[in-house]
Design a protein around this nucleic acid. Structure first.
Length: 883
RNA sequence: GGGCGCGUAGCUCAGCGGGAGAGCACUACGUUGACAUCGUAGGGGUCGCUGGUUCGAUCCCAGCCGCGCCCACCA
């Protein structure tokens, strides 16, 4: 028996456990089948499920369940990411509450603490994915710091190093002064800030009272200036080229150099050059052989290269001091308000400081070439294709990738240094030692590089490292390349591009045949959800409130290509109602004894109603398949929603009611069987999107089922099922009923009266068709007089007699004459205008000459229809006026 | 500064060269025999603005206005 109401929270965990216990999620159980592989974008171990995860994993689960039902050998490879910076920060914060710092603890103890934390809390996100219904093969769960994956990381690093594609270099990096680590360009956010532009006077050497004025947004960096640059063609400064300025507060002689970097339009046209703390200035410095004076320590406090008065000051403190001192000396010419962008670390939020350090780099430009070619040649397709452009743009001007991080949590770089600084890159310490011995001619103590790798370095290997690479496992052979990667556009560069590079380099094949880029989930105002804005909608709250299916259906239905999703709770509620509707439809079927008989042949049904719904099922199924093939998730969900509610419930079940409540017999048996069969097909088709409720109904309704729904076969329908004749007949009935309903004002007659149906234009054809279906429609009717309200005309049931069939239709109608008159009048006006428009069109010679014939015909038909409707309305209006 | 995208019903959005659509919200009426509701009907839109192409433009093109995102080293 189906319960009166569906309580998702009571059944979801039970059903999920049954799925998982049955082994249905596991790959490899259909050795003969074609594999279908998706690797999950590994969420951070520190994470908990947010709306982006919910969308991302719902879409993957829809695909995976659909393919599994189609009989493919599905692997949905799950796992989590160690998320270097994020995780380290979480644990550090926790330590801070106990007044412990990471450094006080020491590296080994700290890393141990992180592992302990992971053991305790790292399972949160995967538990939450289960609540969502994600059918990952959990037996294969991986973690980016697993031993196997770490070996893959080391191997990749070592091989790239020996190929010259990983190297150590001293250049400016984005330094995060709070986290004390370098970060890559991608981890820097440009944020607009309101600040000032200060104009500083640098005295010209040997020319008393002469200045060159430079403008800057960061006056404290002047302490590290080593030149002033002007444009070589700038007339204003030509006389100063080759001379020197004296750096105030420091006293350093600064050459005044000509360099095209200097833009005569900006500032004063003369720019201070700080090669150690500005990416442009760094280049200028290289061109002119300028010294690089690093004035900051790792916390961006002034170091000993600054004059004594400023040493130890924070950079913003130093700014105030420098400005005050310059002003005191009359060297601050003016200050203007200025809005500009400043780089911020995406994790710490601190203003990033360009800083000169030694770091490890990956030669991304070389690795990018095959990755670009793969997409150009269509070996990997990016959907929707607009993202292909973004991918190309970025890949074609890709910069060296800084992969070393001054953190403790992560893959420690497999590089060892000898006493003379010579580096030995190797898979492990023993190998490094052996190399060192060969090099130095004796065993020697080595020091391991302290740094760890950027998290994304290990993520780049995810599609093959999770399958067991570098070991030649059967999984690598069978499941690589993966079929599709489902992800948001925010990590195309961070992740997708790098997986492409790594996959092509080490597997010699693209990591995925298709990349499906979905929208981001925003709040109902279209703003990014963030903790600081407090506008986060927690998917788990929604699951508690409406059930996982409602959330999944909402996200699937809203996953249209090309637009971000603005999610509101009301939306989820609406889709929850759909789940309820489905539940009740199933209940109705059960109550009416609708059982799918064994061996039901949808092609063999006789009645129009049954033939029609069978065809509609086939049509809906094809639409779902087509939509999912093209990653039009919204069309798949929307089509099913429409089919279940609008076609199956509103029409089929309503039309079936008279039969189901009528006398027993073959007609009734057939409708019962067709209803049960259709419901079964609905459960199957809906299962990938709303797995829980469909599985529950499948089990309850079932009779004997050989499998759970999750493993039921996806339907394929024979071509003949869509019967044009049945379509026409049912289509006609539906239109007829709709028309009777909508023209109830015209039929406003006393209860029990007998009138000819559609007193106008009922031709013989119509009459015969009505006769054929009379009984069905006749039973559909319910009779009952309606009480009249005060001041209104009484409505009532209308009996319609036509040929041998008798109809009684409920006319619920209590009609407000004035309102109705006004309404009809308005509609007539509209129609008159429409008819005039169509008349004009048909009279237009250019139109009739140039437009395709079918269009002309169409217009003529429309004109006829419109004037018929107008006549009808006028009749109704006359009747109302008369009454 | 460059690039991309978006402005369609009160809200959230589909559609995209030939009669303006859905869901939610709203109004009216009806529903205690599948429906935490549901059903039927209804109101509401110069499809951002201005030009152009076309027999015909919400749809194609150009410009403008507004919004958002991405990229960028600009003082």
């Amino acid at each position: 028996m189906i319960e009166k109401t569906y309580r998702p929270n009571d059944v979801e965990s039970r059903i999920y456990a049954a799925w998982e216990d049955s082994g249905a999620f596991r790959c490899g159980r259909r050795p003969a089948a074609q594999p279908y592989t998706i690797v999950i974008p590994p969420p951070n171990v520190t994470g908990s499920l947010h709306m982006g995860h919910a969308l991302n994993n719902t879409l993957q689960d829809v695909l995976v369940r659909w393919r599994r039902m189609q009989g493919r050998d599905v692997l949905w490879q799950p796992g989590t990411d160690h998320a270097g910076i994020a995780t380290q920060m979480v644990v550090e914060r926790q330590l801070a509450q106990q007044q412990i710092t990471r450094r006080a603890l020491g590296r080994a103890a700290f890393v141990e603490r992180v592992w302990a934390w992971k053991a305790e809390s790292g399972g949160t996100i995967t538990r939450q994915l289960r609540r969502l219904g994600a059918s990952c093969d959990w037996s294969r769960e991986r973690f980016t710091l697993d031993e196997g994956l770490s070996r893959a990381v080391r191997k990749v690093f070592v091989e790239l190093y020996h190929a010259g594609l990983v190297y150590r270099d001293k250049r400016l990096v984005n330094w995060d002064p709070v986290l004390h680590t370098a970060i890559s360009d991608l981890e820097v956010d440009q944020r607009e800030v309101k600040g000032s532009l200060w104009f500083l006077r640098y005295p010209i050497e040997g020319e008393l009272g002469a200045y060159i004025v430079v403008a800057t947004t960061r006056p404290e960096t002047m302490l590290g200036d080593t030149a002033v640059a002007v444009h070589p063609d700038d007339e204003r400064y030509r006389h100063l080229l080759g001379k020197h300025a004296i750096l105030p507060l420091v006293g350093r002689r600064l050459p005044i150099v000509g360099d095209p970097h200097s833009d005569p339009e900006k500032g004063t046209g003369a720019v201070k050059i700080t090669p150690a703390h500005d990416f442009n200035d760094f280049e200028v410095g290289r061109r002119h052989g300028l010294p690089m004076v690093n004035i900051f320590d790792e916390q961006a406090r002034l170091n000993d290269s600054a004059p004594e008065a400023y040493r130890g000051l924070d950079r913003f403190e130093a700014r105030k001091r420098v400005l005050a001192d310059l002003e005191a000396q009359g060297l601050l010419e003016k200050t203007e308000p200025h809005v500009y962008t400043l780089p911020h670390g995406d994790r710490s939020g601190a203003v990033v400081e360009p800083w000169l350090t030694d770091q490890w780099y990956v030669d991304a430009a070389t690795l990018a070439k095959p990755a670009i070619a793969a997409v150009e040649q269509g070996r990997t397709r990016i959907v929707p294709d607009k993202w292909q452009g973004e991918y190309f743009n970025w890949m074609r001007k890709i910069q060296p990738w800084c992969v070393s991080r001054q953190l403790w949590w992560g893959h420690q770089i497999p590089a060892w240094y000898g006493p003379d600084g010579r580096v030995f890159v190797a898979m492990d310490e023993a190998e490094a030692a052996a190399r060192a011995k060969a090099h130095y001619g004796k065993a020697i103590e080595l020091r391991r590089d302290e740094d760890v790798l950027d998290t994304w370095f290990s993520s780049a290997l995810w599609p093959f490292s999770t399958l067991g690479w570098p070991d030649p496992t059967p999984e690598v052979a069978r499941y690589y390349p993966t079929d599709v990667l489902v992800t948001g556009h925010d990590i195309i560069f961070f992740w997708v591009a790098r997986m492409m590079m790594a996959g092509l380099r080490f597997m010699n094949a693209v990591p995925f045949r298709t990349v499906y880029i979905h929208a981001l989930v925003r709040d109902e105002k279209g703003q990014k959800m963030s903790k600081s804005k407090g506008n986060i909608i927690d998917p788990l709250d929604l699951i508690d409130k409406f059930g996982a299916d409602a959330l999944r259906l909402t996200l699937t239905a809203m996953a249209a290509q090309g637009r971000d999703i603005k999610l509101s709770e009301g939306r989820v509620e609406g889709y929850r109602n759909f789940v309820t509707k489905l539940w009740n439809a199933a209940r109705f079927c059960e109550m009416n004894g609708c059982r799918a008989p064994a061996g039901f042949d949808p092609g063999a049904v006789r009645s129009s109603l049954a033939r029609w719904i069978v065809g509609e099922v086939a049509r809906a199924a094809r639409a779902v398949d087509g939509a999912l093939e093209d990653y039009r998730f919204n069309d798949a969900a929307g089509g099913l929603y429409q089919f279940v509610w609008g076609t199956f419930c509103d029409w089929f079940l309503e039309l079936a009611k008279p039969v189901l409540t009528g006398a027993d017999g073959p007609d009734k048996d057939e409708i019962r069987a067709a209803a049960a069969w259709t419901l079964d097909q609905i459960l199957v088709l809906l299962h990938p999107i709303v797995p829980f409720v469909t599985e529950e109904l499948w089990a309850t309704l079932g009779g004997p089922r050989s499998t759970m729904l999750i493993e039921a076969p996806w339907p394929e329908y024979a071509d003949g099922l869509e019967d044009p004749k049945a379509d026409a007949e049912l289509g006609w009935i539906i239109r007829l009923i709709t028309e009777i309903r909508s023209t109830r004002a015209e039929l406003n007659v006393p209860p029990g009266a007998t009138i000819p149906l559609l007193h106008r234009d009922v031709g013989s054809d119509t009459r015969s068709r009505l006769a054929a279906h009379g009984e069905l429609i006749g039973r559909l009717a319910r009779v009952g007089p309606i009480a009249a309200a005060d001041g209104k005309l009484p409505g009532g049931a209308v009996q319609i007699v036509l040929d041998e069939a008798t109809f009684a239709l409920p006319l619920a109608d209590v009609v407000d004459v004035a309102a109705e008159t006004a309404r009809l009048g308005k509609q007539i006006d509209k129609l008159v205008a429409e008819i005039a428009r169509l008349d004009a069109k048909l009279a237009d010679e250019t139109f009739t000459a140039r437009a395709p014939a079918h269009v002309v015909e169409q217009q003529a038909e429309r004109r006829e229809e419109a004037s018929a409707t107008r006549r009808r309305l006028e009749t109704a209006l006359g009747r109302l006026g008369g009454g």
